[in-house]
Design a protein around this nucleic acid. Sequence first.
DNA 1: ATGGCATGACAATCATGA
Length: 260
Amino acid sequence: MKIATWNVNSLKVRQQHAIDWLALSGVDVLCLQELKLPDEKFPRAELAAAGYRSWFAGQKTYNGVGILVRADAGFEVDEISVVRNIPGFEDLQQRVIAATVNGVRIISAYFPNGQAPGSEKFAYKMRWLDALREWLREDMARRPKLALLGDYNIAPEDRDVHDPKAWEGQNLVSPEERAHFSRLIELGLTDAFRKFEQPEKLYTWWDYRMMAFRRNAGLRIDHILLSAELAARCTSCEVDKVPRKWDQPSDHAPVIATLG
DNA sequence: ATGGCATGACAATCATGA
């Protein structure tokens, strides 16, 4: 099973990119973030024509997440298992959707950006991370084959940052955010990317400005965390920079993990 | 220090992102 995550920064604008990349990559499950459209505008029929079933939680303008599952792979998706948002955490922002695919718990998450340490949005990010972790703890106890995929808006280490000195003290790299990432790992999750040898300075996000992609001025903020059972089955994890080079790209690149 | 680019809502700028 090939699973992937991609922040598309508007599924309306990136619909064709998503369809093209599904054909190119052949992934079985794709977690999407930043749909930026309400549920009634989700391109379900177009994705079905491309061979994928969809589950999603959208809203107007901001946020929005989805899970696409290859239709011809014969995967069973347990409808009763589908969860939108973090149970018990009141939130108007649509940032989480979970579904169980062939017994594998798949969670697509768009973590808050946090704006800047000390801001109200940063405090919301901390509360959201607390709620996510406590829900994951329960969910993973019931469903030990669990994968948390998404835009974490956290670069876990300095080697995940093109210029750690310039970024010091900012959101995405702050000690508080990195401590939250560590607490997710302490639940028993493994960063699939770091399970393997990787090229130096490989990131998943590059700013649209200042020719950041050409300068490789990026951050690794999109991740696939796997429970022990899935980490043991994981045979590769790669960042695909190809769609970041297409015309009118998302500012994020997709990340793929293969489970044997 | 600021904005640099992109998207969406909305109809000229503004909120937000990372």
